[in-house]
């Protein structure tokens, strides 16, 4: 499971976390709850298509 970087955001004291999910059964989909702390800059988010860095996954 990819762990988000969990260092505290210095100026806001916000700690991003990703809920740990114990895989109960195979072939089940699990969506971890993720707390977001950092955002893209306004124009950057329109260009990237999301305001959340953790969701930005361009195919390069």
């Amino acid at each position: 499971m990819r762990i988000m970087n969990t260092e505290m955001n210095i100026d806001t004291g916000c700690i991003p976390f990703e809920e740990y999910i114990k895989v109960e059964e195979l072939a089940f989909a699990y969506v971890p709850s993720q707390k977001i702390c950092s955002y893209f800059e306004p124009m950057e988010s329109l260009v990237n298509g999301t305001v959340f860095p953790s969701l930005y996954k361009p195919y390069k």
Binding site: Y39, P42, M43, S45, L46, T50, V51, F52
Partner: peptide, 11 residues
């Protein structure tokens, strides 16, 4: 700027 802000509000 308005379009950017509306986009962020939706996200």
């Amino acid at each position: 700027r308005l379009t950017v802000l509306d986009f962020i509000a939706v996200d």
